[in-house]
Design a protein around this nucleic acid. Structure first.
Length: 672
DNA sequence: GAGCACTGC
């Protein structure tokens, strides 16, 4: 991989860096000599100014000598864009091998890939490419640096379980501990045992590196035999790279805060009154909180004019229509101060420029799963210290900033959890289990996770998959159903519904329903338009429930020629419908490939209901006749459930519908 | 009377 160059001899072509031990390490490989290319020099200078540049040689040395390298890098260190380039320059992408870098989010994949292509002076999709769902911007035998979501890499493992074409896999943002990152880490650890030449780089923003290191620590027996073969050291290396953020001064509440919305509003007003120019970012928990805070601040601006004039107050959450979301990116006019009131979306997914002050409520909405009741819930819960630091860091991107925490220092130090609970321990496991089964992991209960899900959750998932006919008595995938379900990138209950629809002759309809279920929401809602959007929804409402209502919406959208005006008029989210079309096409392709029959049942909703039941029978529930508040109980487990207010059945059904199946707790319901 | 954020051949 690398050769040593002796001082005194002629300097070799390529890149020369100081070796840790005082020598000079010459890194061979297909390094571009494109320095004459226009604009290259300034880009090269920019690259060298990044904090990670100082660590170029140590990083390459560690990757060379260790199976796993853990890199702790704060935001702005440049690790994501630079390390893959260093690896390529050092020759890790020669001989048909690829370097992979995974991200938890699609947008990040695209952004990083195009940045790296630009820095290297190549066209995106050639040497540097990316793959996300629906978009493969890579070229076979040309692309050597590949950025992809961790979900896509997991899918790739179904065809190539050892990921043989990759020489180095960098898992970025590992501290976020998303479900797919955790599955990926567990599987990569297994791959390492079969492929000692594979190198892993785990990159994380927090110092939870030690537990990650323990996870990748191989057993002693293995280590001895490895060392005999002069293979890489099996003990993970840890390297820390500083960020480029500015100092953020932290202020705590002196006493516990009763109402964090109110406190956030008054803190914002105080900042506006006393602090020099600079935008404010307020972290609250959800649409409700945010709309209320926006209202309170706007009222303040209008009534008390004096202090709070010059405030531009903007909400930010993912459910907001695209155009409204984009408002937060435009800079405030001179003399005005922008206040963005946001959910967690601004903690990791979106970066706002110009933020100098952060107000942190200390809470976020988090998903929790109760394996006993088999119900997932969204609850407001305290954030972790790692999140609190991440939020504060948002104030220090352009210059030194300030963070106002709406909780006491005593609480931060002594009561706030250090890390959040990994998502895998807060979720239903059916999708995970089927993915592992599809990869041939037989001993699901013995799988080595970075954080183990509860045994109850695993058992519950195995039960559901068994009852769906996806797993057999030996917990092996059934043929063909189990293998078919594993091929479809959806919740197994939805996949099973699709397979049943093929047999029943209503797959066109069911695939539409499945596509709608896989987007956030097809309705437009928001403050001030509830009444109109509710009325619009009623125009599509079907007695059978929300899923058949979706079919009506889709039909109308299709007949309008997929028109955005039609969507606007009917309070339907146009972007969501475009996504539905995309997912629908993908599902049709997959359905054909796995041998399903594509057929429409025209208007026979009885068939649609049968197909839905084939997937969702485990969610059947029964109206409690003696309760007058519309309470249902699940047939399995007698769990209390209620129809969600967003359902078309919310008003009409209380006394009319005896049996329901819900496709998603708290979201939609269907009469079957 | 109400939807944190993501992802997928």
């Amino acid at each position: 991989m690398s050769q040593f160059w002796k001082p005194g001899t002629e300097r070799p072509q390529g890149r020369v860096v100081d070796d840790e031990e005082g020598g000079v390490l010459f890194l061979s490989g297909s390094h571009h000599s494109s320095s004459s290319r226009h604009g290259y020099a300034s880009i090269e200078k920019q690259r060298q100014r990044l904090p990670v540049f100082k660590y170029r040689s140590p990083i390459l040395y560690l990757v060379e000598t260790h199976a796993t390298t853990i890199i702790v890098g704060e935001t702005g260190s440049g690790k994501t864009t630079q390390i893959p380039q260093y690896l390529k320059e050092a020759g890790w992408a020669t001989g048909g091998r690829l370097i992979a870098c995974t991200q938890p989010r699609r947008l990040a994949v695209q952004a990083v890939a195009s940045r790296v292509a630009e820095e290297m002076g190549v066209k995106l999709g050639e040497e540097v490419g990316y793959t996300i769902r629906f978009e493969d911007v890579t070229k076979l035998d040309v692309t050597v640096l590949k950025f992809l979501t961790d979900g896509v890499l997991l899918r790739e493992m179904m065809d190539d379980p050892l990921l043989t074409k990759y020489s180095v896999i960098m898992v970025d943002e590992a501290h976020e501990r998303s479900i797919s990152t955790d599955i990926l880490l567990g599987l990569l650890k297994k791959i390492q045992r079969c492929r000692p030449e594979l190198r892993l780089i785990i990159s994380s923003a927090t110092i939870e590196a030690k537990s990650m290191s323990d996870f990748f620590q191989m057993r002693k027996k293995r280590r001895e035999s490895e060392n005999k073969d002069h293979g890489p050291q099996v003990e993970p290396a840890i390297l820390s790279v500083e960020g480029r953020g500015f100092n953020v001064q932290i202020n705590y509440a002196e006493e516990p805060v009763q109402d964090y919305v109110q406190a956030a509003v008054s803190t914002t007003l105080l900042i506006h009154e006393r602090e020099p120019a600079g935008d404010v970012l307020v972290f609250l928990t959800g649409q409700d909180d945010i709309d209320m805070a926006v209202q309170l601040l706007t009222d303040e601006v209008q009534t008390s004019g004096k202090h709070s004039s010059g405030l531009i107050v903007l909400p930010l959450y993912s459910g907001l229509p695209r155009a409204d979301q984009e408002l937060v990116f435009s800079p405030a006019p001179r003399g005005k101060r922008k206040v963005v009131i946001s959910t967690n979306i601004a903690e990791t997914s979106l970066t706002l420029e110009g933020i100098v002050y952060v107000v942190d409520s200390g809470f976020s909405k988090q998903r929790f799963y109760n394996p006993i009741s088999d119900i997932e819930n969204l609850v407001v819960a305290p954030i972790s210290r790692a999140s609190a630091r991440q939020r504060a860091g948002r104030a220090g991107r352009v210059r030194p900033g300030k963070c106002y925490r709406l909780y006491t220092e005593e609480y931060f130090l002594n009561h706030m959890p250090n890390e959040g609970i990994p998502e895998i321990q807060r979720s239903n496991m059916v999708s995970c289990v089927i993915q592992l089964k599809a990869l041939g992991i037989d001993n699901i209960l013995g799988f080595d996770w970075p954080a183990s899900p509860s045994a109850e959750a695993m058992i519950r998932a195995l039960e559901v998959l068994y009852s769906l006919g996806v797993l057999d008595d030996d917990a092996k995938l059934t043929s063909p159903t189990g293998f078919q379900v594993a091929e479809i990138p959806l919740d197994p209950m939805v996949s099973k519904m699709i397979i049943a629809s093929s047999q029943l002759g209503c797959s066109e309809e069911i695939i539409t329903i499945a596509a709608v279920l896989s987007v956030q929401s097809i309705w437009i809602s928001g403050r001030g338009i509830q009444k109109e959007s509710d009325e619009a929804k009623l125009r599509f409402a079907a007695a059978e429930g929300d899923l058949v209502t979706f079919l009506n919406v889709y039909k109308g959208f299709h007949q309008s020629g997929k028109s955005s005006q039609w969507c606007h008029k009917n309070y339907v989210n146009y972007h969501a419908m475009r996504k539905v079309l995309e997912v629908r096409e993908q599902l049709k392709r997959i359905a054909k490939r796995i041998g399903l029959v594509l057929k429409s049942c025209e208007n026979d909703m009885q068939l649609v209901r049968k197909a839905v039941t084939a997937g969702f029978f485990a969610n059947a529930c029964h109206l409690e006749a003696y309760s007058h508040n519309g309470m249902y109980k699940t047939l399995r487990g007698s769990q209390e459930v209620y129809i969600h207010p967003s359902s078309v059945l919310f008003r009409s059904s209380k006394s009319e519908v005896d049996y329901l199946q819900f496709s998603c707790i708290n979201r939609s319901t269907i009469h079957a």
